[in-house]
Amino acid sequence: MNVERETVSVGEFEFACGESIPDLEVAYEAYGEFTGDNAVLLCHALTGSAHVASHREADDATAGQARAWWDDIVGPGKAIDTNDFYVVCANVPGSCYGTTGPASENPETGAPYGPDFPPVSVADWTEAQRRLLDELGVPHLHAIVGGSVGGMNVLEWAKRHPDHVDRIVPIATAARLDTQSLALHGIKRRAVLADPAYRGGEYYDREDRPTEGLAVARQIGHVMYLSKASMDRKFGRRSAGRDAQRTFPADPTAQYFPYRDVESYLDYQAETFVGRFDPNSFIYLTRATENYDLSAGFESDEDALGAFDGEALVMSFTGDWHFPVEQGEALADALRAAGAETAHHVIESDHGHDAFLVEPENVGPPLADFLAEGPEGSAITDTVEQSRDYAPVHNSLFGT
């Protein structure tokens, strides 16, 4: 598989907030050969990177991930077949995986931008990707695919550059966060801000980083990404065992009560995350997610998508309470009303929001068919009426 892994300067960049930086560098990976009409852009989730598929040149330390985040979907002979498509994934502005963000050096001061980095939005991610594709000589896209906030990124493309893409695949996403998700995002952000080591975002020259607050924020996120059923099945009420090592200090009652398997899992996930992600980037990217609203500047979601006359595949998961099926159907309705030929493929799964990352056997077939055939692909089921019957409340963190 032919692979490009580069960081490209797209020059001075003005963010949607009105602030500018003198040079935006965008880290990207590209797979396959560009033939003029076969480009597919992938949009990563909140803390993802450009490292989508495994390859010999991969440096996972640089990618910031233990493994390629969609390796089961992208590659030769896989759902997004790099023998057929030229696949590009760019790390978004504000991140810490190669593209310019708060931890990057400000050329005007020689120090990290820190909290002086401009606030970022999903619109900024879209424009940075458009600038990168211009540098790569890719004027038009066969498709754009993304999950979670990456799905919002996909929608923003259809809104801002409707003539630049033929097909879009927003997966496990919605036109905006609901109130419960906004609340949990706010708690995650407060966990970081309340860490004494955060110091208003000015911590890059200190040995003690705000890892404790970021660890708690990551744990809240992991609970959001799982469902009740998947947590019960994976952990139950089991004790973690005598050999389990606590990451966080034990409370005064710990000697009387078990350190549970689910606690150990969350502690491990938090410990690995804080070693690879920048707290300021976490703040910036969660803010971008929270403030995304597809209808911004328009009267409705339908109006925002009115200029897109391509084809769409919306994918939802029944166990996803972060972006429930009903939000996916509302998005599909807006696309249909805007005139886009649209299928809403609902996947029965009790895994939770992360199902789009860990269930390639369910995600791959409809995705491959859509890229090849459009909404009429044989593996695609447009469950318009069926999807209206799903009541995602029982999968919520506060449901029963």
Rank of each mutant, 00 (worst) to 15 (best):
Y284S: 12
T286R: 02
T247S: 12
E341F: 01
I347G: 12
V346Y: 07
P252R: 00
L335Y: 06
A244G: 13
T272G: 08
F282A: 06
P249G: 05
G352V: 03
V325N: 14
S264A: 14
F323D: 09
V223R: 07
G306W: 11
V314F: 15
D261K: 14
N280C: 14
R242N: 07
S349T: 08
F248G: 10
D333M: 06
D320N: 15
L305G: 12
T247Y: 14
V274C: 08
Q269W: 03
G297Y: 09
Y292N: 10
V325M: 11
S316N: 15
Y268R: 08
S227F: 02
M315Y: 04
V346A: 09
D303H: 12
G310Q: 15
P249N: 07
H322V: 05
A240I: 05
N291R: 11
D350P: 00
A250W: 00
D309G: 09
D261S: 15
E299N: 12
W321L: 07
E341R: 12
F323H: 13
L335F: 14
D267H: 06
A304Q: 11
T247A: 13
A343H: 02
A288M: 08
Y292K: 07
D350N: 07
G241C: 13
F273R: 03
D232A: 11
M224F: 01
D301Q: 15
D278A: 12
Y256W: 01
T342F: 09
N291G: 10
V262M: 13
D301E: 15
G352T: 05
Y268C: 05
A334H: 04
L266Q: 07
P252I: 01
V346I: 07
H344W: 06
A229W: 03
D320P: 10
T318G: 11
D320R: 11
A270E: 11
V314A: 15
G297C: 07
I283M: 07
E271G: 05
E302G: 11
W321P: 02
T272H: 06
L285F: 02
E348A: 06
T247P: 04
R242H: 08
R287M: 14
Y284W: 07
E290Y: 03
P249D: 10
H351Y: 08
F235L: 11
L266H: 01
D303E: 15
R233Y: 00
D232N: 12
A304H: 15
T286K: 02
G241R: 08
A250N: 07
T253R: 00
A244P: 01
S300K: 14
Y284N: 06
F277G: 05
D243Y: 10
A307Q: 15
R246A: 10
T318W: 02
G241Y: 08
P249A: 08
D301Y: 06
A312H: 07
H322T: 02
L294P: 03
F323K: 09
P252T: 00
P324H: 07
K234V: 01
E290S: 10
D243I: 13
M231V: 08
L313E: 11
A338V: 03
T318E: 09
L226G: 01
R246C: 09
A229D: 08
F257P: 00
F308L: 09
A338K: 00
G297K: 15
L313T: 09
E263I: 01
T247Q: 12
L313F: 05
E302M: 11
L305V: 10
L294D: 12
S281R: 01
R287G: 13
L285I: 05
W321F: 02
S349W: 04
G275K: 13
E311N: 13
G236P: 02
A250S: 04
